Amino acid sequence: MNGYFQIDRPKILILEDEPLVADGLCKHIRDLIPDAEIVEVLPSVKRAISWFEKSAAPDLIFADIQLADGISFDVFKRFEPSCPVIFTTAFDQYAIRAFEVNSVDFLLKPIEKTELKIAFEKLRKRREVFGLPDFRNALERLNSGKIYLERLLVSHQNSLIPVGIDEISGFHKAELIFLIHRDGRRFITDFQTMEDLETKLDPAIFFRANRQFIIRIDEIKQIKTTHKGLEVHLKTSQISAVEVSRERSPLFKRWLLGGH
């Protein structure tokens, strides 16, 4: 069974109009996932639409954004495949739009095998921890009005960089609201209030522990009882402990048990 997909012979579809790029990507995929089946390499929106009309959804799609006759977003406007997508492009101006399509990752050309391996690892983690959300589920959340952040743009060294929701350990409000990355780094966010941020986070994953902290469920390492309530210790070294008051402790326990 393949470790990234938890199935044998995962089927991978590639949307790419540059033959040399497609060949290189196929080689990297076969090096990293020897049992993968590349079902088709499609160079155009027209051929991709025709393929989806006749074929079952693959297990993963690699989609170049700019194809021979348009952009791959036009394919996904028409079809909602129940599988993840990794976008590839030579132009980073499409990054934010790609994130809005619920992609697993966004890779800039030329694609290196090490970057592809990291993307596959993200895919594995999302399957193991959260269960992979698909396009149809995203559309259902849109129709129900329940849309949660998939990624955030944060400030870093006079630049903006995207951080996936699965990379976030929690949030800390000091003078500004900081995102705490799972690797320990801290980034400034654009959010003005914790209340606004809280409404945009999936309550199955994040919990508002107190005024200063929002924490992530799978980042919890240990919970201790105190005279004030609960003391939550997280895996990241950037946060020593987070207090949950006695009044909020019942809500916290229900959240841990899946009763959010």
Rank of each mutant, 00 (worst) to 15 (best):
Ile86Glu: 00
Ile61Asn: 02
Ile205Lys: 11
Lys122Ser: 07
Ile214Gln: 03
Glu198Ala: 13
Ala204Ile: 10
Asp92Ala: 10
Arg126Tyr: 11
Ile147Trp: 05
Asp31His: 13
Ala22Trp: 07
Thr236Met: 01
Ser155Glu: 11
Ala98Thr: 04
Ser169Trp: 01
Ile217Glu: 02
Phe79Leu: 07
Ser103Asp: 04
Ile38Arg: 01
Leu176Arg: 15
Arg97Leu: 13
Glu37Asn: 15
Pro203Phe: 09
His181Asp: 12
Leu152Cys: 05
Asp8Lys: 14
Thr225Gln: 13
Ile14Tyr: 03
Gln212Leu: 06
Arg30Tyr: 09
Ala56His: 08
Ile215Tyr: 05
Ala57Asn: 14
Val232Ser: 05
Gly145Tyr: 08
Ile188Lys: 13
Gly170Leu: 05
Phe213Asn: 09
Lys122Cys: 05
Phe135Arg: 14
Asp59Arg: 07
Thr236Cys: 03
Ile29His: 02
Pro162Glu: 06
Lys125Ala: 09
Gly131Arg: 09
Ile215Gln: 06
Ser237Lys: 13
Ile220His: 08
His181Leu: 02
Phe76Thr: 06
Ala22Phe: 10
Ala138Pro: 00
Gly258Ser: 08
Ile161Lys: 12
Phe62His: 01
Asp8Glu: 14
Lys146Arg: 14
Leu20His: 12
Gly258Asn: 04
Phe87Pro: 03
Phe99Arg: 05
Arg246Val: 09
Glu112Trp: 08
Asp31Phe: 08
Asn143Met: 14
Thr236Arg: 03
Leu149Gln: 09
Lys173Val: 12
Arg47Asn: 11
Leu67Thr: 07
Phe79His: 13
Ser44Pro: 01
Glu195Lys: 14
Gly131Lys: 09
Glu243Asp: 10
Val154Gly: 02
Val41Gly: 00
Ile168Glu: 01
Phe178Trp: 15
Lys173Glu: 10
Glu40Gln: 12
Gly259Asn: 15
Val163Cys: 06
Val21Gly: 10
Ile214Ser: 02
Gln6Thr: 06
Leu107Tyr: 07
Ile111Arg: 02
Phe130Ile: 12
Gly184Pro: 03
Asp31Leu: 09
Arg208Glu: 02
Ile239Tyr: 02
Ile215Asn: 04
Glu121Ile: 03
Phe252Asp: 00
Met194Ser: 00
Lys173Ser: 14
Ser159Leu: 12
Phe91Asn: 10
Glu37Ala: 14
Arg211His: 14
Arg185Gly: 00
Glu53Val: 07
Ile12Val: 11
Glu195His: 12
Asp8Tyr: 11
Leu42Lys: 02
Ala48Ser: 11
His172Met: 13
Pro84Phe: 04
Asp59Trp: 07
Asp74Asn: 14
Glu140Arg: 15
Ser50Asn: 11
Leu108His: 02
Arg246His: 14
Val45Tyr: 05
Phe76Ser: 06
His260Val: 11
Asp17Trp: 10
Ile161Ser: 04
Gln66Asn: 13
Asp17Ala: 08
Val41Leu: 05
His156Ile: 11
Phe62Ser: 03
Phe120Tyr: 06
Ala56Asp: 11
Ile168Asn: 03
Arg182Gly: 02
Lys11Ala: 12
Ser144His: 14
Gly24Pro: 04
Cys83Leu: 04
Gly145Val: 04
Leu139Trp: 10
Ser82Ala: 15
Leu179Phe: 01
Arg30Cys: 00
Ile205Tyr: 09
Ile168Trp: 08
